[in-house]
């Protein structure tokens, strides 16, 4: 599965979110998108699965313009894990996960559908919650169910908007490790928005940094996660330590943080809200 963004721009009215982005992701690996709040990470992701239409530029999926895909055909190839889940009437965990079969299924749920759902719940360690109500779970468990559901869709490309946001350290690592293995072993391209630099560094095959309306840096964690880049992206001093062959980022508190933060206290265009 190859996804190619060509000269992609997006703006809300006259407020630009990003401009002329070119990006090719052409092999099954774990790609992490990093960037400060409001950099347009979610919007960029929404342009990759038709949730939002870019202002200009084109997205190609396997060489075909994304616009030519119907939502249903796209759903067979690309799955999405939203940032948050807002259910009103919640179903059981298993039934929630089974909605992931929708693009493939006929009218009735088959034994095979249930087996796929169950297998993915097991993968996330959620099998014992299968018959519980979705709303009875914690935020972290919600996230795991949503990932299981996304896998149940059996996509070629998985997009995730901050899948580790509500997870404790152990599950952040487990989920990122799982996503890496999904990419490696199942041949699925996984693109995820991240905030934690160290977890990203540990598991990402490729890191894309979004800053100043463009792709600021793109490469392996070692190439991209540098003291300079982090200073520019977030305005924070840090020290990079090499651990297990990957950069480990120790963030430093300091006076320059104050001044930098103050400089940056201008209001930026918000983007990437779920329903913008």
């Amino acid at each position: 599965m190859e996804i190619r963004l060509e000269d992609l721009s997006f703006s809300y009215g006259s407020v630009p979110v990003f401009k002329d982005i070119n990006l090719v992701i052409d092999k099954p690996e774990l790609v992490c998108i990093l960037g400060p709040n409001g950099a347009g990470k979610s919007t960029l992701m929404h342009c990759m699965n038709k949730l939002q239409a870019p202002t200009s530029g084109t997205v190609y999926l396997d060489g075909k313009d994304l616009k030519t895909y119907s939502l249903k055909d796209l759903a067979k190839l690309v799955s999405f894990v939203p940032h948050t889940e807002d259910t009103t009437f919640s179903m059981s965990v298993l039934d929630t996960v089974l909605t992931g079969r929708l693009p493939h299924a006929g009218t009735l749920t088959t034994q095979e559908d249930v087996l796929i759902a169950a297998e993915n719940l097991k993968l996330l360690g959620m099998q014992k919650y299968a018959m519980q109500g979705f709303d009875e779970l914690s935020a972290g468990q919600h996230q795991k169910v949503m990932i299981a559901r996304s896998l149940t869709q059996e996509p070629k490309l998985m997009l995730l908007d901050e899948p580790t946001a509500n997870l404790d350290v152990k599950y952040q690592m487990l989920v990122m490790r799982l996503l890496r293995d999904v990419a490696r072993l199942k041949g699925i391209t996984v693109v995820t928005i991240c905030h934690d630099l160290n977890v990203t560094s540990m598991y990402a095959d490729r890191v894309v940094m979004l800053y100043d309306h463009r792709i600021y840096a793109d490469g392996t964690p070692a190439e991209v996660l540098t003291e300079d880049n982090i200073k520019i992206l977030y305005g924070i001093e840090c020290q990079i330590i090499d651990i297990q062959g990957r950069p480990h980022i120790a963030l430093l508190d300091g006076d320059e943080l104050d001044s930098h933060l103050e400089d940056n206290l201008t209001i930026r265009p918000t983007s990437g809200t779920d329903d913008a």
């Binding site: 929404h46 699965n49 038709k50 949730l51 119907s70 939502l71 249903k72 055909d73 796209l74 759903a75 067979k76 690309v78 799955s79 999405f80 939203p82 889940e85 807002d86 259910t87 009103t88 009437f89 919640s90 179903m91 039934d95 929630t96 909605t99 992931g100 929708l102 693009p103 299924a105 009218t107 869709q153 779920d274 329903d275």
Partner: peptide, 23 residues
């Protein structure tokens, strides 16, 4: 009743429902 499974997916939010192929 035929549309009920689409309603199930829409329960998880419009964005999710779109990404499983529902207009």
């Amino acid at each position: 009743m035929i549309l009920s499974r689409f309603l199930n997916a829409m329960n998880s939010g419009d964005n999710y429902a779109k990404t499983v192929g529902i207009n």
